[in-house]
């Protein structure tokens, strides 16, 4: 599969100023901007990094460049939401998509493990939904509370969930605002910190699961965000990352985006 992607990248390097992908060097893998003459043999597909954040930073730093990016399904969904919020210029980006393997889709509980037009890989069957979502959603109120309080009490407030999130790009973050999250308290007092982030993830979260993977306290954050994704779909018929034409409903009027129930 990687050979086909390398070929597509080499081809794009003719029409683009560079292609964002992963590169293995010095024993580690990190995002890299491949340019003409770079050794494409060093290109890798795993592990996942939020490459669309890299694209966004490059687009902002160089307002004229045209980029390519090697993207998975989650990267493409992240791109859709970022482009809507003016973080990426869609006219200056070409996506070289590839489908994840069935194992990856399973491990990520990924419902859309492939971009719309993959140049490599066969889109696998969607992974199962995260069983924790149904489990904790069915618990009585008190048990849910004791579960989440215990989880949140592990938080070391590293802000890693926010830092790694492709959809978290606000210049002023509510989680750093002393009016909403008091400084100097560890773990952040229930329910301030995590509820603020979960609420802000409504209509944004594309279920890439980067936050959960980078959480040093192993908090199952995506259980909460999956529930928010379900709600925004039920309430407003909006699926983040699905359609670049669909406007995000929370900033529209009721005439433009009516409540479904």
């Amino acid at each position: 599969m990687i050979a086909a992607i390398r070929e597509a990248v080499a081809e794009r390097l003719g029409s683009c100023d560079g292609v964002v992908a992963l590169r293995r060097r010095n024993g580690g893998v990190a995002p890299h901007l491949f340019q003409k003459g770079d050794e494409l043999a060093e290109m890798e597909l795993s592990p996942r990094y939020p490459l669309m954040t890299v694209v966004s930073r490059l687009h902002k730093a160089f307002p004229a460049i045209r980029l390519g990016v090697v993207a998975r399904g989650c990267d493409e969904r992240a791109y859709v939401e970022m482009a809507k919020r003016n973080q990426i210029d869609p006219t200056r980006l070409e996506i070289i998509g590839f489908a994840c393997t069935a194992e990856e889709a399973q491990a990520c509980y990924c419902r859309e493990p492939s971009p719309k037009h993959p140049v490599a890989g066969t889109p696998p069957a969607p992974g199962p939904p995260n069983p924790l979502v149904a489990k904790y959603d069915s618990l009585p109120l008190e048990e849910r509370r004791s579960f989440w309080k215990k989880q949140f009490s592990k938080c070391i407030k590293c802000y890693g969930c926010r830092n790694i999130c492709p959809e978290c790009f606000c210049e002023a973050c509510a989680m750093e605002d002393m009016a909403w999250v008091e400084p100097g308290l560890l773990a952040p007092p229930f329910p301030t910190f995590h509820l603020i982030r979960a609420m802000h993830m409504a209509s944004r979260c594309v279920a890439c699961r980067e936050c959960e993977h980078t959480c040093p306290a192993y908090i199952p954050l995506t259980v909460l965000y999956d529930l928010m994704r379900r709600d925004i779909a039920d309430l407003l018929g909006y699926i983040p990352g699905a359609d670049i034409e669909a406007q995000q409903p929370l900033s529209l009027s009721l005439e433009q985006a009516p409540l479904k129930k």
Binding site: I156, K157, C158, Y159, G160, T214, C215, P216
Partner: peptide, 9 residues
């Protein structure tokens, strides 16, 4: 393993 604390970030 891809995790950092607030100092690292």
């Amino acid at each position: 393993g891809g995790r950092l604390c607030i100092k690292g970030w």
